[in-house]
Simulated scan of single mutants.
Amino acid sequence: MNPLDSSVHHLPVEYFGTANDFLSSAESTERDTLMIACADQGGSPDDVSFAKPGRLFVVQHLAASIRPAGDAGDNSSVSSIEFAFSLYKIKHVIVCGHTECGVIRNWIRYPDTPDVSGIRACFQTTLKTVNQAYPDYLGEDLIETMICEHTLFQLEHLCSHAFIRNKLDAGKLRLHAWVVNDDTARVRSYDPTRSCFTII
């Protein structure tokens, strides 16, 4: 995957966890991880993790989109996220994109189609940023970058909610951004120190 522009996102490095967080506790049966994945993602998105079945609470939404705090639109995905935090001792949140995301590909190909979901605004920020920061990207390079950047923007939206930010600031929560290759099932995880997604 192409390196990303390190100036685009401003999430503190200490907010992020690593794949080792899961490898070292792979045998745990505690439901302590929330995965936010795309509704278009085939199969069960938690199958790509190292965890035993039942370890992850999974929320699936179009392009794994999360509305920022203060957004007046439908916040059903945020309600599901809050529910997970109220029910379980969530220590990790994974926002999981995927390379064949039909939602993002459709938004790129048909930008004028009606926004029946009401969440395309989540994508407009990504589109504007990618057009400005990566003006030479075309084809699959453009789509791949869109998917990676969109995944990171959803983490920023997540962090705009006080119940998330308070846990992060208290050191009780770690963030993870993953992108799954649908053809190979290989997972890339965002490394905030290098501003790139690397194979786990």
Rank of each mutant, 00 (worst) to 15 (best):
P114M: 07
S44G: 09
A84C: 11
C148E: 15
W178V: 03
V59P: 01
A64Y: 08
I164S: 00
T193G: 04
D182A: 15
A72P: 04
I108Q: 07
T193C: 08
R31P: 04
N106L: 11
F50D: 08
A84P: 08
Y15N: 04
L4P: 00
S195Q: 09
E82D: 12
L168A: 02
H161D: 03
T33N: 03
I90P: 03
T99E: 07
M1R: 04
C148N: 13
D47W: 07
K52I: 05
P12E: 06
K128I: 09
H176W: 00
W107T: 01
A19E: 12
V59M: 05
S79W: 02
P135C: 06
W178Q: 03
H176Q: 12
M1N: 04
F163D: 07
C196F: 01
Q132G: 08
G42H: 13
C96A: 09
R105S: 09
H9V: 10
L56T: 03
T113S: 15
D141W: 03
S25Q: 12
W107L: 14
Q154T: 11
R120N: 11
D169L: 15
D136H: 09
A51G: 15
I104P: 01
Q132N: 13
S28R: 10
S80D: 09
S79C: 10
G139N: 11
S189W: 00
V103W: 00
R188F: 08
N106K: 10
D115M: 05
L62N: 00
L127T: 06
T198G: 09
L4M: 08
R186M: 09
W107E: 07
D40H: 03
I147E: 03
L127M: 12
G42I: 14
L127W: 14
A72E: 14
K52M: 11
R31G: 00
E27W: 11
H61P: 00
S160H: 10
D112R: 09
G42A: 15
D136Q: 12
S86Y: 12
D5L: 02
T29D: 08
S86K: 15
D112A: 10
N106V: 05
N131Y: 05
S189Q: 10
G54M: 08
A133M: 10
G97R: 02
H150N: 14
P192D: 07
A121S: 15
L152F: 03
F83K: 07
F83V: 13
H150E: 01
D5Y: 02
H9T: 09
D183R: 13
D46R: 05
K91H: 12
L11M: 14
K89C: 08
E27T: 12
Q60C: 14
D112C: 01
G171D: 06
K52L: 14
C101V: 02
C38R: 04
Y110D: 13
H10S: 13
F22M: 09
C96R: 05
G42C: 11
N20M: 13
